[in-house]
Amino acid sequence: MKRIFLSVACLALVLGSCQNNANEIKPDQQEVTVDMSDFYVYTSDDNTTKSGHIHGPQCGSMKVLNRQLKENPSLENRMYNIEKHTRKLIAAKSATNASSKKPGGGGTTGPIPYQGSITIPVIVNILEDANHPVTQAHINSQIAILNEDYNDMNPATGGVPSEFNNAVANVDITFVLAGVNRKASTRTSWGTNDEMKHSNLGGMDAVDPARNLNLWVCEIGGGILGYAQFPGGELDTDGVVIGSDYFGENAAGGQYGHGRTATHEVGHWLNLRHIWGDGGCRQDDFVTDTPSSDRANYGCPAYPTVHCRTNDMTMNYMDYVDDNCMYMFTNGQNDRMRAIFGTGGARETFVQ
């Protein structure tokens, strides 16, 4: 009897050991941890003071985000979770790449930013003002410019300074016109309260925003060229608003009439912050390969333009320079954009 008891005890010990081994987490399977101590959402509404362009044209995205955060206290937590998920996917990609370089490596640490080509259907909602017409030529040129910029086909990219040459990214996103809706409007200034996105307020409702990028084209006013909603906001207001004169190739827009307002604002919609981080030298845009800065740049700055002891990447689409002087995204920005299309990402429905 004692002999049988000892045999059973030994068997239990062996089985327990096997079970422990089976549940043991291997180094390349551990959950990626990320530092969120630098995360922020609220910013100053006016980021132009240091640039000397207090009354210059602006992007209204951060002002709109501040308003939405005040109106919806849960938005900050949603954006925190989206940012944490974004950082985990990017960290997992780095860990996977490092593992693949080791002898016998190649294991994964979990989901990484989406790696395939991405196609985004675009719905253009136009609130027509007779004094600021939006033609089919404007629409076609805007889609073409988005495709040029998000596929590294901007001819000006050939002039990127050598310092940033290895950072230039092909984001591999194709935008396809999926529909155009028009509604006559006599309103000369819609502001930034999202009223243009609601039919009951005189605007136009979003069309299936979980699967389409909705662009609203109207007179915004207040020196605002355009604004976007970041991932995490309410679905019925999701999309990008662009001033009529700054949509597509448009002579009425002057130096901002070459379609890059949409490129910039779609970048926000894809989770990019302004390249200077909307703050001082220590406030970041959460991208490792963009240099620190403490202000927006305007016009067509000479290289190098130095702030925070580094050369500004003034030619980045997420700065405020003239349309013809912005011509690149970075690999780090590309990872951020692609993370929201990855498994569990805020815009995963676009690739499912």
Rank of each mutant, 00 (worst) to 15 (best):
T343D: 13
M1A: 14
Q136F: 10
H132Y: 15
N125Y: 10
C59T: 12
L272Q: 09
C308Q: 10
G254Q: 02
D335A: 15
F175N: 02
G105A: 11
A169S: 09
V266M: 00
E24V: 15
T33Q: 11
V34W: 04
N20Y: 14
A144V: 12
T261M: 03
H132I: 00
M62Y: 14
S61A: 10
D194R: 14
R182C: 03
I145A: 09
C18I: 11
T237H: 06
P121D: 13
E163D: 07
P291R: 10
A184L: 06
E71V: 04
V41Q: 04
C325F: 03
G158F: 04
N250K: 05
S17C: 03
T192N: 11
E249F: 09
P133T: 04
L6C: 12
G226T: 02
Y317R: 03
Q229H: 11
G279M: 12
E163P: 02
I82T: 10
S244F: 03
Q142I: 02
E348T: 08
G107W: 13
G248Q: 07
N170Y: 08
L146P: 06
I242S: 04
T263D: 05
G233L: 09
E76V: 13
H264D: 06
K63T: 14
I123M: 14
I220T: 03
L6H: 08
A22P: 06
D45Q: 08
N131T: 06
D312K: 02
T188L: 08
L127W: 06
